[in-house]
Design a protein around this nucleic acid. Structure first.
Length: 1024
RNA sequence: GGGCAACUAGCUCAGUUGGUUAGAGCGCCUCGUUUACACCGAGGAGGUCAUAGGUUCGACUCCUAUGUUGCCCACCA
């Protein structure tokens, strides 16, 4: 390679694409093709970007970190797999395509119909994926494209359906009627954590409400009230409890029942709450307990329903205006306050969420599963982190993870979207001629009418269905062992099964074992049990001594077949009249399977055996709950193993002032622009150095430009070395050092290699990046390269020893050795840098060794013990040179002016004498005189300048304070410290070096004790 | 309301289990046409480590309060 062709400045633009192409064509992204014996796998599942297209700087961040890790592991010799893919991102994608459709064609998805619309989405996604792939490549991603997956492709769809069916058969997936978060704009349900809150000033309306005044921020929902609730202890309203009232709300009259409920805070508002069961979770619970009817006044379209009387058909906001107006006219508004209010909004489209009552599919997070050895999925997901099977970095997120899981409610997985995995459930309306069903149903009905009935609160029914075989009752039902009972949902009066009494125990509340799994719900404290009982018996006193009946039973559920048949399976059922559920599954249901579905599950493939559990999950802390927790749930359930060993959570990327990047602020940094301007390597460095796990990273263009400068520096160092070393060659073995500088740079390199190897394993990218940066610029470029120049110069009229170790003289030839060292150091350095800056390092490597790629070289190893003496000696020379430069600048001596310097040193005279030539050259001196102790003209520690003569004392610069500190560092107890200090005091050299004041103190304390130590410290302070 | 984090140089941030003179990048000031690099080199200025107590021979680091900021969770009708 003709090194004259190397350009003065590194130009990434031209070379990056061709380098990537070379990598790709090598096939080494695929672990199966990697050279050498590679036994240990290392796997990263790429968090699949949404298939909506453009990658932003946040993606660039995760790409950089993951690529860094995987390249490092590949260099270490692992079977490194980084599996890429995309997520269909149901809501996000559907919303996006709908928007495009509306903007471009003015049509809605309903205008197109399901099939045509999905075709449009498919085309859109295909294009996006293409764009994403291109962007990933621009960043240098060394992921295995041959294994790329998409959450909606056939394999993953099979995985999703299989998962659903298995969970359903295990009783973990059920269909239920609940209050759900409904986004009228997306026309779909949302999971609890997909709801965001917006702090707002809102109005708090006080409305005359029959005999009460109630306060509300949402007056329009009052049209759906079926109750008014007060605290049972609130004396003001005692007499009303239980009454049924008609309430005049202007144009509308509603009928309510006054109930008592603990959850009502007598001190908030007026102490009376209008109960709106259809549109509030809490109200729904209260209504269930008190058998209040449920009236839905807001529809899924965000408009008032027919139940809203004269307001039917109005959007919620308009209804509110009109309704408040009407109330005012009727004199029913007593006052309006301004309050801070949290508005629930959709995390995708930011429209207001309406809590609605609706029939949806849920995953039961509290049901023990045989697959999990009787544990619930929640417990299992907690356990694997508690037991350390999964490590979360940084650790503080462990706590948030626990908190989230512990409070997790059943997960609503059905979405009313078109785009996504269709729920693998089919329904068939019963036909009268379906005799078998008819008889089944009627047989049960007849039977149940004759049977004794036992009621279960709706919230308990799922537990019974889930295998609860015990119930605690305050009431004596007068059952006998052997009685066959009809099990009734006491809210809906629906019969959901039958059972037989096995055993009856009469006891007291205090005697009940708290953790009886047969009961379904278990308790930590008696108080919790009492609380639970009070919930079911709101009007009874409950204490430890209250009498209680424990009924054990055998239970058989009955499918509610009078409405429809349900079929759950991988393929459509045979027979006529089956209709598939129109809904689709929550995106996170499929992405929860990501680590194993992408490797072939439900088939037990070779890949699945080799690469699962994956090694590292690297993702943003913002999706710890959405995604990470769900992957843990899904993997522990389906695979019976963790999805990954470690989780590394990175922070968000923000602008230079720490603000979120957004279109409106116009502060977004587009990684592709930055790559075009400064190169991918510089962009990568800016995302990794200065970035610590879990913390947000502020980034600016100036920062990226700074790293571009660095990449250029590395380029030019290499250019210099290649030019100096003549024909490029590999120097694989560490050359023998011949000069002090050689020993020093090798010692520094070996230290760096160790540091890098250790800290990259611990994902301390930033600190490693800084260290290699420092080595490259401040050590290699600023010192070693400069020294090597003077060595080259030494071929002039006065051959120079240039930092040559004395011993080397006798060995003869020292000239030219620095070239081998330079090549060796550069080659090792390129390997260290490669995970960070793959492009430029690969380009330089190609000039050294065109036949092999840097990407698959072996990670460097430190050779032998680090030569600490070399580091210390070299630093002394450095300090002398720096001190001279400093003095020259301070005394405004022009650089051209040659100086005479007397270096005064007692201890290091020998060393300094040997290196005089180097000092002369690097500090641009006329003459250096090394003086021994005694000739020193001034005993002060500062140098003396007289004319062009500098007296620079070097010995005696050691601070005794350091020694003391070092000692106490080594000692763990005070006693040890004292012993160490005493030993040190016996050392004459120490005493010689110590300033007089300190020695006085130390002499004085013939017996060293705590007080004396304090004195020493004080002495040290005053000395400073 | 509960929790988590941050507060260090003009700006953005490091600082690993307490221990040399608290570091880096950018910015700033002075000087420099040394053939690897001006995307550079040499030197420099700049910090009561948010505040107040405490533990310790010794605290940026540990403990307790307080203040400010950010985030997460819950949510009162």
């Amino acid at each position: 390679m003709d090194n004259k062709e190397i350009s003065k400045a590194y130009e990434p633009k031209g070379v990056e694409d061709s380098v990537y192409k070379k990598w790709e064509e090598s096939g080494f992204f695929n672990p199966d093709n990697l050279p050498g014996k590679r036994e240990k796998p290392f796997t990263i599942s790429m968090p699949p970007p949404n298939a909506t297209g453009i990658l932003h700087i946040g993606h660039a961040e995760f790409i950089t970190i993951q690529d860094l890790v995987i390249r490092f592991q590949r260099l270490l010799g692992k079977k490194a797999l980084w599996l890429p893919g995309t997520d269909h991102a149901a809501i996000a994608t559907q919303t996006k395509v709908e928007k495009i459709l509306k903007d471009k064609e003015g049509r809605s998805r309903h205008d197109l119909g399901r099939e045509e619309f999905l075709k449009r989405v498919k085309d859109y996604v295909k294009n996006s994926q293409h764009v994403i792939r291109g962007q990933l490549k621009k960043m240098g991603s060394s992921c295995d494209w041959s294994r790329e997956r998409y959450t909606l492709d056939d394999g993953l769809t099979l995985a999703v359906n299989t998962a659903f069916v298995q969970m359903y058969n295990d009783g973990l997936i059920y269909r239920g009627t609940r209050i759900v978060n409904w986004c009228p704009n997306c026309a779909s349900t949302l999971a609890d954590d997909e709801v965001e809150y917006l702090e707002q000033k809102g109005k708090f309306y006080y409305i005359k409400y029959g005999p009460f005044v109630i306060a509300t921020t949402r007056p329009e929902t009052k049209l759906g009230d079926t109750g008014a609730a007060v605290n049972p202890g609130d004396k003001r309203y005692q007499s009303y409890i239980g009454q049924e009232l008609e309430v005049n709300l202007g144009k509308v009259k509603i009928h309510i029942k006054v109930i008592a409920d603990e959850s009502v805070d007598p001190n908030f508002g007026t102490g009376v709450v209008g109960v709106t069961p259809a549109h509030s979770l809490i109200d729904f619970d209260m209504a269930s307990k008190n058998n209040l009817p449920v009236i839905q006044v807001i529809g899924p379209d965000g408009k008032m329903t027919n139940n809203a009387g004269p307001y039917a058909g109005l959007p919620v906001a308009e209804c509110r205006k009109l309704f408040v107006n009407d109330l005012e006219k009727a004199g029913l508004i007593s006052k309006i306050e301004e309050v801070d209010n949290n508005l629930s909004i959709c995390y995708r489209c930011e429209h207001v969420i309406e809590p609605l009552i609706s029939k949806q599919w849920f995953i039961n997070v509290n049901k023990p599963s045989k697959k999990l050895g009787g544990k619930t999925i929640k417990e299992k997901a907690l356990e694997v982190v508690k037991d350390g099977e999964i490590e979360i970095i940084p650790e503080r997120f462990v706590k948030t993870y626990y908190h989230w899981l512990e409070n997790l409610r059943d997960w609503c997985i059905s979405r009313q979207l078109w785009f996504g995995h269709r729920i693998p459930v089919w329904y068939r309306k019963p036909r009268t001629e379906n005799k078998e069903l008819g008889t089944e149903s009627s047989k049960f009905k007849v039977q149940s009418s004759k049977l004794k009935t036992i009621g279960f609160h709706e919230s308990v029914v799922p537990q019974v269905l889930a295998g609860k075989t015990k119930t605690y009752r305050l009431k004596d039902h007068k059952f006998k062992v052997g009685d066959v009972l009809a099990f009734e949902n006491s809210q809906t009066t629906e019969i959901f099964g039958q059972g037989e009494i096995n055993k009856i125990v009469e006891t007291t509340v205090g005697q009940i074992p708290l953790d009886d799994p047969a009961h379904g719900a278990t308790y930590k404290k008696v108080e919790d049990l009492i609380k639970a009982l009070k919930f079911h018996y709101p009007n009874r006193e409950v204490t430890k001594d209250t009498q209680v009946f424990v009924y054990s039973y055998k239970f058989t559920p009955v499918q509610n077949s009078k409405t429809e048949e349900i079929y759950v399976g991988l393929t459509p059922p045979k027979g006529e009249g089956w209709q598939q559920d129109p809904d689709t599954l929550d995106t996170w249901f499929s992405s929860g399977l990501w680590t194993f579905s992408t490797l072939g599950w439900p088939k037990m493939t070779k890949d699945l055996k080799t690469f699962h559990p994956t090694s590292l999950m690297e993702t943003g802390y913002d999706i710890l709950f959405f995604w990470v927790a769900r992957m843990i749930i899904m993997s522990t359930y389906f695979m019976s193993e963790v999805p990954f060993r470690q989780v590394y959570l990175h922070g968000m990327v923000r602008d230079e002032k720490g603000r979120k990047m957004s279109k409106s602020l116009d502060n977004a940094i587009d990684p592709l622009d930055m790559i075009a301007k400064y190169g991918a390597d510089a962009t990568r460095l800016s995302l990794v150095i200065g970035n610590t796990p879990g913390n947000d990273l502020n980034i600016s263009e100036a920062r990226i430009a700074g790293y571009r400068n660095f990449v250029n520096k590395l380029w030019n160092i290499s250019r210099y070395i290649l030019m100096k070393a003549g024909p490029a060659k590999l120097v694989e073995k560490q050359p023998l050092p011949k000069t002090l500088a050689d020993r020093w740079i090798l010692a520094e390199l070996n230290t760096l290699i160790d540091f890098t190897s250790v800290n990259l394993e611990k994902y301390n990218f930033s600190v490693v990046g800084e260290k290699i940066y420092e080595f490259t610029w401040s050590k290699l470029a600023d010192w070693y390269v400069e020294v090597s120049k003077s060595e080259a110069q030494g071929s002039g009229p006065t051959p120079s020893t240039m930092l040559r170790v004395p011993r080397a003289k006798s060995r003869g030839r020292a000239q030219g050795n620095s070239e081998n060292i330079l090549l060796y150091v550069l080659q090792s350095l390129l390997k260290l840098w490669h995970p960070f800056t793959p492009f430029v390092t690969e380009v330089i490597w190609a000039k050294l060794n065109p036949s092999a790629m840097l990407m698959v070289q072996a990670w460097p190893k430190a050779k032998g013990k680090v030569d600490k003496k070399a580091i210390k000696d070299f630093e002394l020379i450095q300090n002398i040179i720096t001190a001279i430069r400093n003095l020259r600048a301070e005394s405004k001596l022009p650089p051209a002016k040659r100086l005479k310097v007397f270096i005064v040193s007692a201890k290091n005279a020998g060393l300094i004498k040997t290196e005089v030539d180097a000092i002369k050259h690097l500090a641009r001196l006329e003459d250096v005189v090394v003086a021994v102790k005694g000739k020193k003209p001034d005993k002060s520690l500062s140098a003396v300048i007289s004319g062009a003569e500098i007296y620079l004392p070097v010995s005696g610069m050691i601070d005794v304070g350091q020694e003391v500190k070092r000692l106490s560092l080594e000692a763990k107890r005070v006693e040890d410290f004292i012993i160490h200090l005493e030993k040190k005091l016996e050392n004459k050299q120490f005493l010689e070096r110590a300033p007089k004041e300190i020695i006085e103190v130390e002499r004085e304390k013939l017996i060293i004790n705590k007080e004396n130590l304090e004195k020493i410290n004080q002495q040290l302070k005053t000395l400073k």
